[in-house]
Computed example of a mutant assay.
Amino acid sequence: MLKESSSGRIFKNPILEKLTRTHISAPLIVFGGISFYLLYAAIAVKGLSFIITVMLFVSGWLLYSLIEYMMHRYLFHMEESTPVRKRLVYTFHGVHHQHPRDKDRLAMPIPVSLALSAILFFAFQFVIGDYVYAFLPGILIGYASYLWVHYMVHTFQPPKKGIFKIWWIHHGIHHYKQPERAFGVSSPLWDMIFRTMPDR
């Protein structure tokens, strides 16, 4: 049986394997900085009102939480019916389930997440114009909050009470008891809506 503190391997190539590892502070700093700049540009450069900026930011955060839930449920835990699917599931998420305390595999590599962020920026800019400057930070901070919560629940013992204890129990049930439930990490909102809250 694998030890929880052990580390899996995704690629045989040592360079590619190194690129799969990301210290948790890197994306938090990068996406925090990008979000701050975009929010500043939304108000100071693009002239969006404070209220509109807040509403767009919250909308982006909610959209991220839904994306997080859907990807975790339907992509990361899809049926491994073919060798390709099995490989994809292991690469995206299976290695994390086998080695849940590997601190360097709790975030996407920075180049990948930056590329996805750039694609999202231009896609949303095409659809909603300058509102993207307030909307995208909600998505990015949503991702950063997911990373923070995910890191905390996998690396720290929770206090006896409080929101962190709730997150810790919720995600622990997903890992160790009911992997077909509790797909929300940063929030149980969509588990409640789609009725995938764990049985306790």
Results as ranks from 00 to 15, higher is better:
residue 37 Y to H: 09
residue 38 L to R: 00
residue 38 L to H: 03
residue 39 L to R: 05
residue 40 Y to H: 12
residue 41 A to F: 11
residue 43 I to T: 15
residue 43 I to G: 11
residue 44 A to M: 13
residue 45 V to S: 10
residue 46 K to I: 06
residue 48 L to V: 04
residue 48 L to A: 04
residue 48 L to Y: 03
residue 49 S to A: 08
residue 50 F to W: 13
residue 50 F to R: 07
residue 50 F to E: 12
residue 51 I to L: 14
residue 52 I to L: 13
residue 52 I to G: 06
residue 53 T to D: 06
residue 53 T to Y: 04
residue 54 V to G: 03
residue 55 M to Y: 14
residue 55 M to Q: 15
residue 56 L to F: 14
residue 56 L to I: 10
residue 56 L to Y: 11
residue 59 S to V: 03
residue 59 S to A: 13
residue 59 S to M: 07
residue 60 G to Q: 10
residue 61 W to P: 00
residue 62 L to C: 05
residue 66 L to P: 09
residue 67 I to W: 10
residue 67 I to T: 13
residue 67 I to M: 13
residue 67 I to Q: 08
residue 67 I to H: 05
residue 68 E to K: 10
residue 68 E to D: 10
residue 69 Y to C: 02
residue 69 Y to W: 08
residue 70 M to W: 14
residue 70 M to V: 15
residue 70 M to P: 00
residue 71 M to L: 15
residue 72 H to C: 03
residue 72 H to A: 07
residue 72 H to L: 02
residue 72 H to G: 06
residue 74 Y to V: 03
residue 75 L to I: 15
residue 75 L to A: 14
residue 75 L to W: 12
residue 76 F to G: 08
residue 76 F to W: 12
residue 76 F to L: 14
residue 77 H to S: 02
residue 78 M to Y: 05
residue 79 E to D: 13
residue 80 E to T: 13
residue 80 E to H: 07
residue 80 E to R: 12
residue 80 E to F: 05
residue 80 E to K: 15
residue 81 S to R: 09
residue 81 S to Q: 07
residue 81 S to G: 06
residue 82 T to Q: 12
residue 82 T to L: 10
residue 82 T to S: 14
residue 83 P to E: 08
residue 83 P to A: 06
residue 83 P to S: 05
residue 83 P to F: 08
residue 83 P to D: 09
residue 83 P to G: 06
residue 83 P to C: 05
residue 84 V to E: 09
residue 86 K to Y: 07
residue 86 K to I: 02
residue 86 K to P: 01
residue 86 K to H: 09
residue 88 L to G: 01
residue 88 L to N: 00
residue 88 L to M: 14
residue 89 V to Y: 09
residue 92 F to K: 05
residue 93 H to G: 08
residue 94 G to D: 09
residue 94 G to A: 10
residue 95 V to A: 02
residue 96 H to T: 05
residue 97 H to E: 13
residue 97 H to K: 12
residue 97 H to Q: 12
residue 99 H to Y: 15
residue 99 H to Q: 00
residue 101 R to C: 02
residue 101 R to H: 12
residue 102 D to V: 00
residue 102 D to A: 00
residue 103 K to W: 00
residue 103 K to Y: 00
residue 104 D to L: 11
residue 106 L to M: 14
residue 106 L to F: 05
residue 106 L to T: 11
residue 110 I to A: 00
residue 110 I to T: 03
residue 111 P to T: 02
residue 111 P to L: 02
residue 111 P to I: 01
residue 112 V to R: 03
residue 113 S to M: 07
residue 113 S to D: 09
residue 113 S to N: 05
residue 113 S to Y: 01
residue 114 L to M: 01
residue 116 L to F: 04
